[in-house]
Amino acid sequence: MSKQIYIELKNDLSEINRLSTKLNDFAEANNLSPKILFALNLSLEEVITNVISYGFEDDKEHQILVHINSIEGEISVEIEDDGKPFNPLQVDEPDLTIPLEERPIGGLGIHLIRNYMDDLEYKRDGYRNILKMKKKSNTN
C-alpha cells in the first residue's frame, strides 16, 4: 500500500475539500490517529489558504503541489507553489496576552502550524516557495 501521496491543487478555496478527502485516505492507509490527521488537516489548510489568498498577484490558475510521506514514525509534508516569495517562518508570533479585540488578526495560521507540527523548514528555490513540515506520528 502506498505510504506517500502527491496532490496537485489549483488556487481555489474549494480545493480544500479535495485536500481533506485525500488526507483522510492517506491517514487510513497509514493507520494514523485522528489527532495526527487533525494536525495534518489544519497545518496544510493554513499554509494552502494563505498561498491561495495572498500568494498570487495575477488572476491566472496556478498549481500548488503537495507531497506527503510517512517514514519511520514521521510524516513529512512538502508544499510547493510558484507564488511571490513568502517565508511564513518569519511571521511574528501573535501576542496572546493582548485582549482579543485589539489583537492583530494576521499570524494566527502560522501560530497554529507551529503548535501542531514538530519541525518547519522554508526555502525559496528559483521562482518557487517550498515549505517542509514534519510531524511525529508514533506519539499521540
Binding site: F38, N41, L42, E45, E46, T49, I105, L108, G109, L112
Partner: peptide, 9 residues
C-alpha cells in the same frame, strides 16, 4: 469536527 483560523475569525 474541525475548525481552522478562517472559521475562528
Amino acid at each position: 469536527t474541525y475548525i481552522s483560523s478562517d472559521g475562528i475569525l
